[in-house]
Design a protein around this nucleic acid. Structure first.
Lengths: 91, 91
DNA sequence: ATATTATTTCGGTATTTAGCGAAATACAGA
DNA sequence: TCTGTATTTCGCTAAATACCGAAATAATAT
């Protein structure tokens, strides 16, 4: 859980995830849309992979990133479990 | 958003929030349940306040913390907005 | 005014993080 | 094998974070 939340705490990484929601993208593709160096971006990818929020597939020299929807859903479920068990929300 | 996620990225802070879900508690109360120094805990409180996840009320020398349920709900909504707009989840 | 209790601020150290450019690696094609 | 393209790893620096104990602040009571 900590890994997921700290991954989400960076605007750059949230932007990456947001792009991946729409379509899978290569590292270079993503780099073209963001204003950080490629090596920096690679570090962000590592954080996202460690949190299991994205997965990769290689095709030749290009690596394609895709969003791990299930992990996002697990996190949402965990949040609901953490905060959503109150009894007095009648709205 | 960044503030909320980075606040949630600490296990100590998540534990605090989890306790506050059940009942309001004073700083000292919370300190008795966690294995960190009071000054450290005070730092965590500042992070939670900056993220607007908790609010405080003073009564004499004791300060009572309570969970800001609405902010949690807003965050959940933001997450759904970020990840939950896919069209192909038929389950 | 002084003492007591609750909490925060201060000063310090150690660890983690984000960022960069340069060099290294991985693969495909000539 | 050499070249080109895509991506990552390696050093490095700067800034942020977590932690502690000691000192400071806040409020109440004597």
């Amino acid at each position: 859980m900590s890994d997921v939340f700290s991954a989400l705490s960076s605007p750059v990484r949230r932007e990456i995830l947001s792009m991946l929601k729409d379509r899978d993208m290569t590292a270079g593709d993503i780099a073209d849309h963001l204003d950080v160096g490629k090596s920096t971006l690679s570090g962000h990818f590592n954080v996202l992979k460690a949190a299991d929020l994205v997965s990769t597939s290689r095709s030749g020299t290009t690596i394609t990133y895709s969003l791990n929807t299930s992990v996002v859903e697990e996190m949402l479920a965990a949040l609901v479990g953490m905060f959503g068990h109150g009894e007095d929300e009648g709205n």
